[in-house]
């Protein structure tokens, strides 16, 4: 070694030399006339110690781990994650939490049930009854399961299809890109809900799956556009150019550099889309295009069918599902925003 160089983490004079900093073995012209300092052993040790303390010695922290660490310090992320986590727990443990079977009709509820009055809170049924004499609280709890299922599945389907289209467009470019992007432009041009309504209406028989599929399709162009744009930006980036200069195969450049670096933005978008998917599914149910199965407990359905029909009789039938949807959507949005902030390289230190 011939020049005094930085040793990562230990930029101090190397031990074994009596002169500090004479880590280079070539004589430095002009240095002889300069007064060279001499450091005592104890001070030398102290300097080493200080240098170690100042050097960021966390070592080997990848971007993802770095982002997670930052996420854990962000109160927005904590609130968002708590909300989402709470709802997921409720969904998973619904059978344990719910006091009753969500589809069972109770005699003590049905006997008071008329078109003009739906029983409120009674003993054993703190949220009262739904229009068919079922336990409303249990249906709300099971609703978390159904609603999250629709949201997660719709988002995942939309994400996969969008990533596929975006990746193909971004990787190949040229006319493939032009064709795929014009296609997504057409889809983006239609209002998303209108597109979903059309898709559901086109299906011969409406079911839970038509709703999921419709909601998923609507988010495809958003993911595709985002990934493609991000990949195009990556294609121009220095590190992709560097990989090309190294002679890395084009396929590996796409798979190892362009795609992973573009995906973070898409994954953040997915958490945001999740909230939208739940709202879209609720909207479809509200418009009567949802799942026709009357036994299915899903917040959108509950809000859209019962809540709408019996709003004047018992507004809680609308309030509770609406509140649940808003809170869970807010949770995902907060989490998504916090993630976006966490992966932003500008916040890295």
């Amino acid at each position: 070694m011939s020049d005094p160089i930085t040793q990562a983490g230990a930029p101090t004079p190397r031990s074994g030399n009596d002169k500090p900093g004479s880590g280079d073995d070539k004589p430095r012209p002009g240095m002889s006339e300069r007064s060279i300092g001499v450091l005592g052993d104890r001070k030398k040790a102290r300097l080493d110690e200080l240098a170690r303390a100042s050097a960021s010695d966390r070592g080997g922290v990848s971007l993802v781990r770095d982002a997670v660490r930052r996420l854990r310090r962000n109160p927005v992320a904590i609130v968002g994650a708590s909300i989402v986590g709470l709802f997921i727990l409720v969904a998973i443990f619904a059978p344990l939490i719910a006091p009753h079977d969500p589809v069972q009709r109770f005699d003590e509820l049905t006997k008071n049930l008329t078109v003009d009055s739906i029983p409120g809170a009674t003993a054993g049924h703190p949220f009262g009854s739904d229009p068919l004499g079922r336990d409303f609280l249990s249906r709300m709890i099971y609703g978390a399961r159904q609603t999250l299922f629709v949201g997660v599945l719709a988002t995942l389907i939309g994400l996969s299809l969008g990533v596929l289209i975006g990746a193909i467009a971004g990787a190949f470019g040229g006319w493939v890109d032009v064709v795929l992007m014009r296609l997504t432009d057409v889809m983006l041009a239609l209002p998303s809900l209108l597109l979903a309504i059309t898709l559901v209406a086109m299906a011969s028989r409406s079911s839970q799956w038509t709703v999921i599929f419709a909601v998923a399709i609507v988010s495809v162009p958003i993911f595709a556009r985002l990934l493609r744009g991000s990949m195009l930006a990556q294609r121009e980036s220095d590190h992709v150019l560097a990989a090309r200069a190294l002679g890395v195969k084009e396929r590996n450049i796409v798979l190892r550099h362009m795609l992973p670096n573009s995906l973070t933005a898409v994954i953040v978008q997915a958490t945001l889309t999740f909230a939208v998917a739940i709202l879209d599914a609720a909207a479809l149910s509200f418009l009567g295009l949802g799942d026709p199965d009357i036994n299915r407990a899903e917040w959108g359905l509950m809000l859209g069918v019962d809540g709408q029909r019996y709003f004047e009789v018992r507004p809680e039938l609308a309030y509770y599902p609406a509140l649940a949807i808003i809170v869970v959507a807010l949770g995902f949005t907060l989490l998504g925003e916090a993630m976006r902030e966490a992966i932003d390289p500008k916040n890295r230190r």
């Binding site: 005094p4 160089i5 930085t6 930029p11 101090t12 500090p20 900093g21 880590g23 240095m31 300069r34 007064s35 060279i36 300092g37 001499v38 450091l39 300097l47 200080l50 240098a51 100042s54 050097a55 960021s56």
Partner: peptide, 24 residues
Amino acid sequence: RGSVSDNIPWTEGCAFAPRCDNVV
């Protein structure tokens, strides 16, 4: 030698000490 990030805090001594040839 070293880089700007190799400073030590001024409260401990001269911030430039870790990079300095004249350190005493």
